[in-house]
Design a protein around this nucleic acid. Sequence first.
DNA 1: TCTGGGGTCCTAGGACCC
DNA 2: TCTGGGGTCCTAGGACCC
Length: 400
Amino acid sequence: MTADPIVTPLLHVDMDAFYASVALRERPDLVDQPVVVGGSGRGVVLAANYVARRYGVRSALPMTRVRRLCPHVVVIEPDYATFTSVSASVMETFREVTPLVEAISLDEAFLDVRGSTRRLGTPGEIAERLRSTIHDEQGITCSVGVAASVSVAKLASRRAKPDGVIVVPPSRVTSFLHPLDVGELYGVGEKTQALLHRFGLMTVGDVAHTPLRTLQRAVGVHLGRELHHLAWGTDRGELTPRSGPYEPDRSMGADETFARDTDDREVIVRELLRLSARVAGRMRAAGVAGRTITLKVRFADFTTITRSRTQTEATDVTVEVHRAVTRLYDALGLQRARLRLVGVRVEGLVPRATVHRQLVLGEPDHGWSDADRAVDLATRRFGSSAVRPASLVGVRARNG
DNA sequence: TCTGGGGTCCTAGGACCC
DNA sequence: TCTGGGGTCCTAGGACCC
C-alpha cells in the first residue's frame, strides 16, 4: 500500500428508480412491465422503472400524460413506510463504511471515504462493494459517482446510471464537465437553462469560459459565482454530516390539492384546519415553534400566491395557526375564485424551550397547548384518525 | 382531470432605525 | 431642508431540488 493522498474521496450514491425498485420487490412479476409509483387522480410520477422510461415517462410527469404515453403502464401507490425503512437500512450500510455520511434524501447520500481506504481499498473499490452489499441486502441497485467535489460526484453518479460506477479523477474533471449541457448543473433548472441558452451559453464549458462579471450580470451575483465554481468543479469538497448540535428545520408546512377545485369557504377553512393540525403536530413532535405563518393559495389556473403574517410570539398551537391562516384567507376577499390547492407553512422555527410566552389578558394560560398535547398523546397511542377537531369529525379521510 | 408535496435559498422593495 | 447610507426585519414572489 502506498501513502498516496486520496484524490477522489467523495462518493455520491443514488438509488436507481428508488420508489419503483422498492415497490417491485413485492411484485417481481412486473419487472418487465412499465411501472410507475405515484398517486392517482391529479398526482404526478414519483418514480418510473426503466421499462416505463423507454416510453418517455419520467419523474414529475402528470399521471394523465403518463397514461397517454403508455396506456398499459402499471401504477403503484407509494408506501412511504417501506421506503423509509429501506432507506434507513441503506444509510446504515453507508455508516458501516464511514461516519461521514451526508444524506440528501431518502435515496441519495454523499460519503467521504478518506478515512476508510486503508481498511477497504480505493474509493472505486468501496463504491463497488457498497453496490453489491445493497443489492444483496435490499434487492435494489444503485449508482455511484466518485470525485473530489460534491457536484462532480453527483454528476458522475447520474452519468453512471443505471447500476454503474464512474470515477472522475482531478485530471479528467474538465473533460468530463465541459461537454455537458448547462442544464445539468446543480441549481440550473428550466428557467436558468433557457436564460443561459439565450446568452449563447450552451455547455458547461461555455459557462466556464465566460468572465465572472458577465455571468453575474446574466443570472445574478450569487448564482453567477456559484455556476462558475460548478463549471470548474471547484465547489465544496467537504461534507457536512448531520451529527453535530441539533439544528431544527427552518420551516414546516403542508399543502394539499383538492380532488376538485372549490370556492366553498367552508370546505377551504376546514382543509386549513386539517393542514394546521398536521403542521402544528409535527412542530410539537419536533419541539419547535414559529412566528411567521404563511398561507398558500393556488387558483384553478395554477397561479399561486402567498400571504404571510409575522406574530410577536412563536406558536406551536393548532388553533393559533389555523386562526392566522383563516384571517389571511379572509383578507384575500375572494368571491368566486376556484381554488386548486391551499397550504399552511410556519417559518422562523426556534426550539420551543426558548419561547417564553407572554400572558395575554383574558387568554387562559396554556389552554390550547394542553388540548394539543392531549391530542398528541392520543394520536401516538391510537393513531392519527383517533382524535381530530370537531369540524373534521365525520369528514372522510381523503387519501383513503 | 395537464401540472404533488416537502423543503431551501435568493431577490427586491419598503419600513424603520441609527 | 438634503441629494446619503447602512443594517435589519417583513412581505411576496420565484427558482430550484428531491
